[in-house]
Amino acid sequence: MLVYVISMLMVGLGAYALMLKENLIKKMIGLGIMSNGIHLFLISVGYKIGGVAPILKQAGLEYLATHSVDPVPQALVMTSIVINISITAVALSLIIQAYRKTGTIEADKLRSLRG
C-alpha cells in the first residue's frame, strides 16, 4: 500500500517539474521521475509477499507457479524503460540543437511559434 502511495507521489512530483519548471533539462528530469513512478506502480502490482523472482531453478515448475511474483509487469516495465530511453535520447539531442540555434534552453524564451 505504501508503495502505491510513494509511486503516485513520484508521479505528482514529476508532473510538477514537467509543468512548472522553465529549464528544459529540468523538464526532462521531471519526465524521468514521472515515468519511474509509473514503472514502480506497475511492478508493485505484480508483487506477492514472500515471492521469489520468476526464474526457473532447481526447485521446479510447480514451485515457481505457486511462489513467484508476476512476471508480466516486469516484462511490461522493461519495454517501457527502453521506450523512455529512446525518448530521452531524442529529447536531449533536440535540446542540444535548440541551444545551438537559439542560445537558450529556457522554455519561455522559445516562443517564436504563436497564434
Binding site: 514537467l18 515515468s35 529529447a91 535548440a98
Partner: peptide, 20 residues
C-alpha cells in the same frame, strides 16, 4: 526544433497517462 520539443513534451504526458 522548437515545434519538435513542444510536441515531445506534450506527447510524453500522453505516454505516461496511457501507461498508467
Amino acid at each position: 526544433i522548437e515545434a519538435s520539443i513542444k510536441y515531445l513534451i506534450i506527447n510524453s504526458i500522453s505516454t505516461s497517462m496511457i501507461l498508467l
